[in-house]
Structure formats: structure tokens, C-alpha cells
Amino acid sequence: MSFFTPENLGKAQVLVGLYPDKRSALIPLCHLAQGQHGHLSNEAMVEIAELLGIQPAEVMGTASFYDMLHTEEVGKYLVGVCTNVACMLGGGLELLEHASDVLGIPPGATTDDGMFTLEEVECVAHCDKAPCAQVNYRYFGPLADSDFDRLVDDLRSDRLSETVPPHGVLSRVFRDAPAMVPLEIIHQERRDMDEAKKARLAAQNQDAGGKQ
């Protein structure tokens, strides 16, 4: 039994083929797995390891470094409230407290119904909309308490399903095609380019020498 659906396995193979070294596809494959399953399961890591020709522990070891890769289940909506300095000046810490009250969970926890996981996040480059929050990496702000309540309502009642896919789905646009030019051809082309450049420079030097 394979973890990836046939469609995603196709995408995975395109990804693996994009790099001079397959291992570079590790993070893209982890995102693909999370898109399919909501988080990064053991089965997914085993299969990613196989695709990359490395050990599952290496996938785990790398994935555990990154905040966005979740080896444990998270809610359908991962709500990240930014409290970094620009948002803090705009009331980010207070917004986080409010979020915690409204959802009934402390940062880091998931609601019993599996709908929401709350996180305190660092700057998400949306500082002109302070205080702001991200839901599954889609941005909202500036958020007064009442705006936050409305956002949670909209998410609960699926009114935002177009803009905010379930957790794990990151980019919904995939690469159309594999890499087009084999590296051997590129390398030959570059050798020729470099030779031509050397010849031009030599000619220039000779010109300059002649004029002196």
C-alpha cells in the first residue's frame, strides 16, 4: 500500500526529478504529504524516504527542524496570531489572549472538535495589517477582537472554504511540466558559452594591446 494517491505520486515524481540531487525534494514532498493528509504521518515519511533514497529517520530529522511540518495531528484550521514587534505595538499580545478565550484553548493546543489549533507566531510579513493572524497561511488583518470573532464564525460555518483550504494544503498551483533541459546538455552549452566568452575577452585584450 502506498501513502500517496496515484495523482500525488505523479506530482512527487515530477518534484524529485527537478533537482541535481533528489534529496532537495524533501520539503516539497513533505508539503505534498501534508496537503493530502493534514499532517506528516509516519507512513508518509517512510514513503518520502523511499522516493529520495534516504532513511525515514533522515526525513523525520529534517522535518522536525521546520515549524510548518507537523508530525502530530493539527486542527483543520491552524490559527497563528502574530505577536512580533509590529503586531505587538498594534495589540497582538492582547489579540492572542482574546483568541485563546474565544477558542477555549491555550496557544499550542487543539479544540476538542479538531477544528482549530492555536499558535503564537513570529512575524509573517503582514505587519502593515497589525495585529494580524494567519489561518493555514492565509492572512487576515488588522483584526479587532470582533473581527477575530467573525473570522472564527466564518471558518466554523465553512464560509471561507474557497480562500482557506484545510490545513496542509499550501500551494494549489503545481508545476505544469518536469525540468525541460537535461543537465548534461546545459553543461555542454555552458562550456561553449564560457569558451566563447574567453575568446571575446582575449580578442578585446589584443585590441587594447594593439592600440597602445
Binding site: 520539503i27 510548518m68 497561511y137 500551494s171 498551483v173 546545459i186
Partner: peptide, 27 residues
Amino acid sequence: SRAFIYLRGEFALGLERVQAAINEAYA
């Protein structure tokens, strides 16, 4: 030999826009 654009993972819309642009540029 090859060019890479490394984008912050949290930029979901940015990733979609840049990938779409790359796809269009190939076509």
C-alpha cells in the same frame, strides 16, 4: 546551470502566484 527561487513557506499565495508565473513563462 539551474535557477531556484526559494520562497518562505508561509507565503501560500506567493507560492501560488510564482508557480503560476513560472508555468506561464514556460508556455
